[in-house]
């Protein structure tokens, strides 16, 4: 039993490790460390057009390899991050950037969540204020309802005593009419 769990544990570790081993390894040399950091950042911000939902740092698709190579080349050529992303967007479309530009087509992407959040907050405030006001205004009707319910229940108890002998004991208690059915449970 213990042996089995050990083997299972090792298998899990191995399978985790294998995903690291499978990850692509490009050997790029950078002229300085800043470029290397920018490379890491940029390849995470660019999306692979072939295997969508993977950034190009993470993808093994040939096109992602090409894109990494181009990112490296442009970096070493002294281009800015903006130019490099623009270079990719020119070729593959806005899709390729995980941080698309703010423009009419992307307004919903950028502002949609804020609008939804705002609407949610408004709804919550609205509902909370409604509940607060209804609690105040309903205090009286509640008591009226209570009386009405008791009246109805007592009537029910009276009628019930005629036909059902079981419920006869419940009819005797006026105040405890709410647990009318409890003996049955």
């Amino acid at each position: 039993m213990k042996k089995n769990t050990t083997i299972l544990f090792l298998l899990v570790i191995l399978s985790l490790a294998s995903s690291y081993l499978m990850a692509n390894i490009d050997l790029y040399e950078f002229s300085n460390e800043a470029n290397q950091e920018r490379y890491k950042k940029l390849t995470k911000e660019l999306r692979c057009p072939k295997c969508q939902n993977q950034d190009i740092a993470d993808s093994n698709a040939p096109i992602a390899t090409d894109m990494r190579r181009e990112v490296h080349r442009l970096l070493e050529a002294g281009e800015t991050d903006q130019t490099i992303v623009g270079f990719m967007v020119d070729r593959f479309g806005e899709f390729v950037s995980y941080k698309p530009k703010v423009k009419p087509e992307t307004y919903m992407l950028w502002y949609g969540p804020w609008v939804l959040l705002f609407m949610g907050v408004v709804m919550i405030i609205f509902m909370a204020s409604r509940r607060a006001s209804s609690n105040k205004s309903k205090a009286k009707p509640d008591q009226d309802n209570h009386k009405q319910v008791e009246q109805l229940l007592s009537r029910f108890a009276d009628e019930g005593s005629d036909t059902e002998p079981d419920s006869s004991d419940s009819g005797s208690s006026g105040s405890g009419s709410s647990d009318n059915h409890s003996p049955k449970l």
Binding site: P49, P62, I63, D66, R91, G93
Partner: peptide, 11 residues
């Protein structure tokens, strides 16, 4: 894939 890349060919 040089021209392909410039054209935005992804497959």
């Amino acid at each position: 894939g040089k021209l392909g890349f410039d054209l935005g060919v992804y497959g």
